[in-house]
Amino acid sequence: MIQVIIDGKTCAAEEGEILLAVARRNGIDIPSFCYEEALAPYGACRMCLVEVVKGGREGITTSCTLQVTEGLDVLTESPEIIRLRKALLELYLAQAPRSESIRALAARYGVTRTRFTKKTVRDDPLQNRCILCGLCVRVCRDVMGVGAINYIGRGQFTEINTPFFEENETCQGCGACAEVCPTGAIAIEDIAPNRIMKSWSGTKVPLKTCQSCGRYFAPSPFVDNTLEKLDTALKAALQDLCPDCKRKEMTRQAILLSTGTPLPMK
């Protein structure tokens, strides 16, 4: 273990840990949009900038890419950091004018309006909320192993969607993209018998019906792919039951077991 100083507070950390994670563990909230523990540091949103005062390359850097070393001394809210963060938030307010989370964070820094021209796209699949942090792209590719969406175009014309803006058959409908999205930009709706990925070119993913109660409970390819990864016994026990019926079934089996009744074959 080593010791690092964040805003004057001494914090214990493992050598090489990401500073942003160390800070959050110690109750110091550095804002960020593109950081996610499960993914490799990306450094795109620039919100987590901190100022290294001592013990490293002095100056301003992103804390999501900063690996801690003994004696590192950083400030997360120096006047310069606050000045830069406010300016970046103004850029975000102009880019994603409909995002409540951006507005809330900006307000926390006293930024309630932007000097920059607001971008509004008619019928934007991402509801004028996307800030291109890339979490959805990365979680889909690097965590789910699917890669149904990616960046399209370059620079200010970058957008995120499925290839050729067509319905994408690799999408499993898991919704991890929407889960990690920091601005709530991704719209998903279940309209039986499909899950509609409204933001992803209306990709339709069939929903699975519970064998017991008959209701739709999860996207079919996602369930099938997940079950692939389980051992056969567990797979047989779980198959095609919605979470409620599964709980019921498990409980029933537990009771039967405790009373010594042999389990009926399913």
Binding site: C45, R46, Y92, Q95, G134, Q156
Partner: peptide, 21 residues
């Protein structure tokens, strides 16, 4: 540079756009 910005980070992508405007 606005045309050639890759679009990954916000200051370059959004900032240059507004500078141009």
């Amino acid at each position: 540079t606005n045309e050639e910005s890759c679009g990954k980070c916000v200051p370059c992508r959004e900032g240059l756009k507004h500078m141009l405007m």
